[in-house]
Structure formats: structure tokens, C-alpha cells
Deep mutational scan, measured.
Amino acid sequence: MQGVVKVNSALNMRSGPGSNYGVIGTLRNNDKVEIIKEVDGAYEIRFNGKVGYASKSYITIVN
């Protein structure tokens, strides 16, 4: 499943599905991501070869 990031500035990509996990990357508006699955209000995603988590509130599914 594919998604597009929709933010005003940037969205943190984290090592786990919550803000208490470390930041492993930054997503920008209109970045395209692969959605692997939904976990606790976040999506597990793949972006630029990395797998991490981002809030589903800022990712629009575009299948």
C-alpha cells in the first residue's frame, strides 16, 4: 500500500510506533512512502530503504 506525507513542515520517522522512540529520519510534504502495516495509531513504513514508524494522521493512502 502506498501513502503520501501531508505536513506543513516535517514529520519524524521513528524506530517505534510512538513519540517516545528515537528519530531515524525525516519526512517532508509529498514524500511517497510504502505502508507496511498499522500499529497503535501509526504506520510502519518504508522510505529510502529504511523501515520505521510515522503518525498515520499525516499520511494519506493513495492506492
Score class of each variant (00 low, 15 high):
Asn63Trp: 10
Gly41Asp: 12
Tyr58Leu: 07
Asn63Gln: 12
Gly3Tyr: 03
Asn12Pro: 15
Ala10Gln: 13
Lys37Val: 05
Ser15Gly: 08
Asp31Phe: 04
Glu38Arg: 03
Gly16His: 08
Asn12Gln: 14
Ile45Arg: 00
Val4His: 05
Glu44Gly: 03
Lys56Gly: 04
Tyr21Gly: 09
Lys6Thr: 11
Leu27Tyr: 00
Ser19Tyr: 12
Gly52Pro: 01
Asn30Met: 10
Ile35Met: 02
Pro17Glu: 03
Tyr53Asn: 01
Tyr21Arg: 05
Ile36Gly: 02
Arg28Trp: 08
Asn29Ala: 08
Asp31Cys: 05
Asn63Lys: 12
Arg14Glu: 03
Gly18Phe: 04
Glu38Leu: 07
Thr60Phe: 15
Gly3Trp: 03
Thr26Glu: 09
Gly25Leu: 09
Ala42Phe: 15
Gly52Gln: 02
Ser9Asp: 12
Ser57Met: 14
Ser57Cys: 15
Pro17Thr: 05
Ile24His: 02
Pro17Cys: 07
Glu44Asn: 07
Val23Asn: 05
Val39Leu: 11
Ile45Gly: 00
Ser9Ala: 11
Gly41Tyr: 08
Thr60Leu: 13
Asn63Asp: 13
Ile36Asp: 01
Glu34Ile: 12
Val62Cys: 13
Gly52Lys: 01
Ala42Lys: 10
Lys37Leu: 07
Tyr43Trp: 08
Pro17Lys: 04
Gly41Ser: 09
Asn8Gln: 12
Thr60Asn: 10
Arg14Lys: 06
Ile24Glu: 02
Lys32Glu: 10
Gly52Trp: 03
Ile61Cys: 08
Lys32Leu: 14
Ser57Arg: 14
Val62Trp: 08
Lys37Ile: 05
Tyr43Gly: 00
Tyr58Asn: 11
Ile59Asp: 00
Gly18Leu: 04
Tyr53Ala: 01
Ile36Asn: 03
Val33Phe: 03
Asn30Thr: 04
Asn12Gly: 10
Ser55His: 10
Arg28Asp: 05
Ile35Lys: 00
Val33Gly: 00
Ile61Leu: 11
Tyr58Met: 08
Gly52Asp: 01
Ala42Thr: 14
Ile36Thr: 05
Val5Leu: 03
Ile45Thr: 00
Thr26Ile: 15
Lys32Val: 15
Gly3Ser: 02
Asp40Phe: 11
Ile36Gln: 04
Ser55Gln: 11
Gly3Asn: 01
Gly49Tyr: 04
Lys37Ser: 14
Lys56Tyr: 03
Thr26Gln: 12
Gly3Thr: 02
Asn8Phe: 10
Gly41Leu: 07
Asn12Val: 15
Asn8His: 13
Ile36Ala: 02
Ala10Tyr: 15
Ala10Val: 15
Met13Arg: 02
Ala10Phe: 15
Lys37Ala: 13
Gly22Lys: 14
Ile45Met: 03
Val23Ala: 05
Tyr43Val: 02
Met13Asn: 01
Asn48Glu: 12
Asp40Tyr: 11
Tyr53Asp: 01
Asn8Cys: 15
Ile24Cys: 06
Met1Ile: 13
Val23Lys: 07
Ala54Gly: 03
Gly3Pro: 01
Asp40Pro: 08
Gly18Thr: 10
Ser9Asn: 12
Met1Glu: 06
Tyr53Met: 02
Asn30Ala: 07
Thr26Cys: 13
Ser15Ala: 12
Val23Cys: 08
Leu11Val: 15
Tyr53Gln: 01
Asp40Ala: 11
Gly22Leu: 13
Ser57Ile: 14
Ile24Met: 05
Ile24Lys: 02
Asn30Leu: 10
Gly41Thr: 07
Val7Trp: 05
Gly18Pro: 03
Ser55Leu: 10
Gly22Asp: 15
Ile45Tyr: 01
Asn20His: 13
Met13Tyr: 06
Val39His: 09
Asn63Arg: 11
Asn30Trp: 08
Asn20Ala: 11
Ala54Ser: 04
Val39Tyr: 10
Ser57His: 13
Asn12Tyr: 14
Asn30Gln: 08
Val51Pro: 03
Met1Lys: 11
Ser55Glu: 15
Leu11Ile: 15
Gln2Asn: 10
Ser15His: 04
Tyr58Gly: 12
Arg46Gly: 04
Asn8Val: 13
Tyr21Thr: 13
Lys32Ala: 09
Val39Arg: 05
Asp40Thr: 07
Arg28Leu: 11
Val4Ala: 04
Val51Asp: 04
Leu11Met: 10
Tyr53Gly: 00
Tyr43Ala: 00
Tyr43Leu: 04
Thr26Ala: 07
Met1Trp: 13
Gly25Phe: 08
Glu44Ser: 03
Asn30Cys: 13
Glu38Gly: 04
Asn48Gln: 12
Pro17Asp: 03
Asp31Arg: 02
Lys32Thr: 12
Ala54Asn: 01
Arg14Val: 07
Lys56Pro: 05
Val5Pro: 01
Ile35Pro: 00
Lys32Trp: 12
Gly49Lys: 04
Ile59Asn: 00
Ile59Phe: 06
Gly52Ile: 03
Ile45His: 00
Asp31Ala: 07
Met1Val: 12
Asn48Pro: 00
Glu34Trp: 14
Ser15Trp: 06
Asp40Val: 07
Glu44Gln: 14
Tyr21Ala: 14
Met1Asn: 08
Ile45Trp: 00
Asn63Ala: 13
Gly49Ile: 02
Asn30Phe: 08
Ala10Arg: 14
Tyr43Glu: 00
Gly52Cys: 04
Val5Ser: 02
Phe47Trp: 11
Val7Thr: 15
Ser19Phe: 12
Ala42Pro: 00
Asn12Thr: 12
Ala42Leu: 15
Leu27Lys: 00
Val4Arg: 08
Val39Lys: 06
Val51Trp: 06
Ser19Ile: 13
Gly25Glu: 12
Ser57Val: 13
Glu34Met: 11
Glu38Cys: 10
Phe47Ile: 07
